[in-house]
Design a protein around this nucleic acid. Sequence first.
DNA 1: ATAACTTTTGCAACTCAGTTGCACAAATTT
DNA 2: AAATTTGTGCAACTGAGTTGCAAAAGTTAT
Lengths: 137, 137
Amino acid sequence: MNKELDRKLKSRNIKPTAMRQLVLQVLIDQKTAISLPELEQKFEKADKATLYRTLKTFEENKLIHSIEDGTGAVKYALCHEKCNCYPEDLHVHFLCAKCNQTYCLNEIQIPDINLPYGFLLKSVNMVVKGICFNCKK
Amino acid sequence: MNKELDRKLKSRNIKPTAMRQLVLQVLIDQKTAISLPELEQKFEKADKATLYRTLKTFEENKLIHSIEDGTGAVKYALCHEKCNCYPEDLHVHFLCAKCNQTYCLNEIQIPDINLPYGFLLKSVNMVVKGICFNCKK
DNA sequence: ATAACTTTTGCAACTCAGTTGCACAAATTT
DNA sequence: AAATTTGTGCAACTGAGTTGCAAAAGTTAT
Ligand SMILES: [Mn+2]
Ligand SMILES: [Mn+2]
Ligand SMILES: [Zn+2]
Ligand SMILES: [Zn+2]
């Protein structure tokens, strides 16, 4: 159906099934990160396990990345086209304490950290908690 | 029994019950952060709910702080004596991908972040993932 | 086109961390 | 001592995530 959805999926070596197109469309429309339970609610009648495996496939193929914001459910957001989820692709995330929305602050790189001797850095999860522009009214 | 345990508890306005003394002792002996399920295993016969409420009391009174390291279970570690869990008390945490231990890097402050206009910072959770000095052998 | 095979989906069942209600026990106050 | 508050133990439950399995859909070989 939608040529652009298929292109995005194929560019990450994901076979474009109907389910995957629907999920990808939701992710594209989404301005903030979304969790599996939230995703479930976006569909009248969708199977949790299928959505779960869809998200997993998307993440494994770096179409999306996951965010542990401490709210109990892992959230997911689209990667940009050239993202490989390497340290240089990592960015800060923001969780609003009021509306509970999680934002990708794509423009904000994760600052360098000098670990103690003997520690080796692989990745960083940085979540800033506060009030978002929307809730500050 | 142990005068020092009681002092620590009382200094945070926590009544020193037997259960709380035992839990605090475990937390003191612990070099890395511990989760509720892990804490449970430290006792022969202890009730999950009681331990849960003990940790909650400890956290509410800032005797311990919690760490969301993305492993599925929230971990807890002792605060230092003067800690108020204010932004200036926050530090980086390190999760070892091999041994799954979570370290408080008390000496490493969380770097300042310049949020986009309209966003207000309240706190930051920063978890570095990698290999710890112990597992790097 | 049919058969054989692979991949995806739907359903049900399950794990595991966290949480709550409730009754009893222990400690504190009156 | 009686009344009240606080803490504990047990059971039951929630909610996110995960898995096994069979049916459906898609692909490849005959
Ligand atoms: Mn992001
Ligand atoms: Mn810590
Ligand atoms: Zn908000
Ligand atoms: Zn380690």
